[in-house]
Each structure stands twice: as C-alpha cells, then as structure tokens.
Nucleic acid binder design. Structure first.
Lengths: 235, 235
DNA sequence: CGCAAACTTGATGTTGCTCAAGCTAGGTGG
DNA sequence: CCACCTAGCTTGAGCAACATCAAGTTTGCG
C-alpha cells in the first residue's frame, strides 16, 4: 500500500453513469481541495464498522464493498462502489459499516476537517453532496425492494443489469470482480442459489459465462423483464 | 383536507429521537421560511411514484408510509415516518416512491424553489440536511441487513424495537397505527407470518397484545437479543 | 505441476408462503 | 340500542422456494 500527498485539483471527468458523480469536480477550482491518494490491495479494509469516521474517501479506481454484520457472522453487503463513488459520508462520529477493497483500489482521502471546510466555503458544494446522498438513498430503496420482495431469479437478473449499467451501458460483456459469495451477500441469497440461478440463466440463453468472472448479456430485454417479475410464461 | 398558508417560523422542538430532526429548527430565524400546512386523512396519498417532485414535506403529526411497487403489485414499504421527518428530499425530477398517510397526518409543505433558496442562503442549512440524509442512509442500511439476512422472528423483534424507539424510549407500550399488511410489506414477510410471529412472542412472554393496535413490551432485553440473532436456545 | 480457493452440482431439509377457514372489533343503519 | 357487516386479524394444513449439507470440478497462482 503506497501513499502520497498530492494537490488534488481535478480528475478527468468520469463517464458519469450516476448523475451526481465524483467529488473532484466539486472541489475543482477551489484552492483548499487538498487530499491524499492511497492504494489498497484486494481484500484490505478501508475502514471497519465502529471505527471513528474521520475521513471521506472517493474511489478513484477499482471496486469496494460495503457491508454490515450480525453477531453470528451473517453478512449483508449494502453496496459495491466503483470509481467516482464516495465512502464514509457519515457525519455521526462512527462508521456504521465496513468498507473493503474487492480489487486493488485507489482512493482519494479527504480529512473530515478539510471536507467540512469545503462544505462551508465552496458555494454549491453542500448542495451537490446532498444530491449524492439523495441518489444513494434512492439506490438503497431499490435494494430494499429487491431484498424484501424479489425472488432469486429476479434478484440475480437485477444484479446483472446493475453491473452492466455501472460499467458503461451497452457493454454486453460485464466484468464481475466480486466473488459469488459477495453477490450472495448482496442479494440476500446463498452462494449455491446464485450459482444455480446463473446456470439456469445460461441454459435459458439469457447470458453466457465465458469465465466465472465475466458474464456476457445475450438477452437484455429478457433480463429486464425478469428483473421486475414480468415473467410472461405465467399462464 | 384543509389547507392554510402560514408564516412558519418554528415548531416546538420535538423530542428528537433521531439526531438531526426537523426542518423547522433549521429555518428558524430566517425570514424566508414560509411554508404551507396541510392535512391528509388516513389512506390519502401525499405523492406517488413518478410524480414530479416539486415539494419537500415535513411530517408535523401522524404517520406516513413510503413504498415502492413491482409491476405485479408486490409492495416494499421503505419507511414509516413520524413527526419531524422529511419527505421528498429528491433533487432528481421525479419521486421514486409513493407516500401515503397511515393515520390522519399534518404536513408542512415547502415549495422546492423556496427550499432550494434556503439551502443557498441559510448558513448551515445544507449541512444540516446532509446530516439528515446521511442518517436516512444509515437507517436504510440497517433495513437492508434486516431484509437480506434476518429470519422472521428477528425481523419482527427488530420492528418492535424500532417502533418503541421512535415513540420515546422506555415507553413499554407501543402504538401500532399501521396494519399487519404494512408491517409485512416493511419486513419482507407475509401478513400470516407477522401474525404468527407476534403470537409466538406473546406466548413466550416477550410481549403482550392488549389490542391488535397496541403492543406491550414485556422483555426488552429478550427482544434485543432476538433482533440480532442472539438466540441462546441454540444448542 | 500442484495446491487452495472459488465455483458448480446434487440430495435433502426447513422456513416461510399459499390457500383456506374462522374470529374479532368497530362502524353503520335499522 | 343492537344486529349486521366488513376490514383486519388469527390460526391451520400443505407446499414450494431456497437453505443446508456434501461431493466434485474448475481456475488461477506459486
């Protein structure tokens, strides 16, 4: 893991799949936007549930998983964050979830104090953050619908579409850096059910599985129907 | 449903179960804080999924449910909002969920334009909103853990504790204004399972059910253990 | 090439859903 | 004032979806 202090002025603008994306563009132009770039190897922890929330991070490269645990070890992954996403935007003292690198990850770290100064001093910054938070909230609500009311096939189909969207639309071959275990803990399923469901989708010609870590979407419309329960073979 | 334009300066401060609570206190002191008070009867819709998000509301009295639907009618309730909570904090054009009154409800409505002016003009307002949004996000993540990884009994116990907390701690008798159907759609269960689970908790002496709409908590510690899966009767 | 981690597949089990009756309470009209 | 009526709640029996347990298989790395 390497570190280096850099004057952080602006990233190249990301393709912005998510509407309000990236912090850099917000701070751009402000002389106070100073941050620390850091790298984490796959599997490393960025921060853990219960840690003091003293920094805000932006994912620059790679993918991060956020999760919560129950005392007996059951895990719920609440999100997979790719480049441009913010972590640790919790103004209440401590982190309420754990963040771990899935792949090798580059992060841009803002000290909380610096970050709060930005909020107060840079016009429009707080507002932009509010947009980011609201967007996260929207995504969280979709996920609640998925977890509470969707069947296994619908969950997996939704997941595939989400990944496809996150990796630039119209990319029919998607990269799956997380394990089946991660997917299961994200969808509220077991690893076996995820595996079986993917096999079923492959057999039905909706996807192809060149390797476990790559999934090709062969029938986008079919998946989209499945994802919201529009299973036409019902009657 | 009655309406009236009022100069909205400040509510009496709420007991603040949720740390960042209520908008009124934020706008207080600002001459631009003008809002509309309105009432909704039980069952009425405040706004629906897909509506233009042109207002922000604060619940002044009563309880509101937020939910999302799947095409075939499956419903996921994403939250029950009581006095002091904000609705419609979505900066992206349209509402992504429906809000309905559970009881008779009094709402304080802010036009979006007014609201955004507040954000820009009142120092600290945006920041406070950010805190509110972050808190909502935290709650949403807890709910994801519940929906994805908790068993029926754990879900119901968690729900009871949540309601107890929302109604002033240490109130051992809690008011349940929502139907079993609402509870089921909040917990990702069926109405029958909710009913059976409550019966089981009553038989085990953890709660009492004087009427379906009131639940008395008889063993708080027991419920807290259940809620996180600390079921000691495991071996 | 060998090893470990990840993934797939199969057989069996259990939780919670579905379908189907009853029950209860609150509101309305006779 | 009481009886009905309906919406909501409870309870039961059977079943299906998904979990669990248990092998195998593949993959990628040293």
């Amino acid at each position: 893991m390497s570190r280096g202090v850099v004057a952080h002025v602006a990233f190249k603008p990301e393709p912005a799949k998510l509407s309000p994306r990236g912090l850099a563009s917000l701070g751009a132009g402000s002389p106070v936007a100073v941050s620390t770039l850091q790298k984490k190897a796959a599997g490393e922890t960025v921060f853990a549930e219960g840690d003091e929330a003293d920094s805000v991070y932006e994912v620059v490269r790679g993918m991060v998983r956020l999760y919560k645990l129950l005392p007996d070890g059951r895990r719920q992954i609440t999100g997979f964050l790719s480049a441009g996403h913010l972590l640790g935007l919790a103004p209440e003292g401590t982190c309420v979830y754990t963040a771990e690198a899935i792949t090798e990850v580059t992060l841009c770290r803002y000290k909380r104090a610096t970050f709060e100064r930005l909020i107060d001093e840079v016009p429009g910054f707080a507002r932009r953050l509010l947009e980011v938070a609201s967007h996260e909230l929207r995504v969280a609500q979709d996920q609640m619908l998925l977890l509470g009311r969707k069947a296994a096939t619908e969950k997996v189909a939704s997941f595939l579409l989400l990944m496809a969207e996150q990796q630039g639309d119209d990319a029919d071959e998607i990269d799956v850096p997380m394990t089946r275990n991660d997917i299961a803990d994200y969808l509220g399923l077991t690893i076996e059910t995820v595996s079986r469901t993917l096999t079923k989708l492959r057999q039905d010609g909706l996807i192809a599985l060149p390797t476990p870590a790559r999934i090709e979407i062969r029938d986008l419309d079919g998946l989209e129907d499945l994802a919201v329960g529009e299973n036409d073979a019902d009657f």
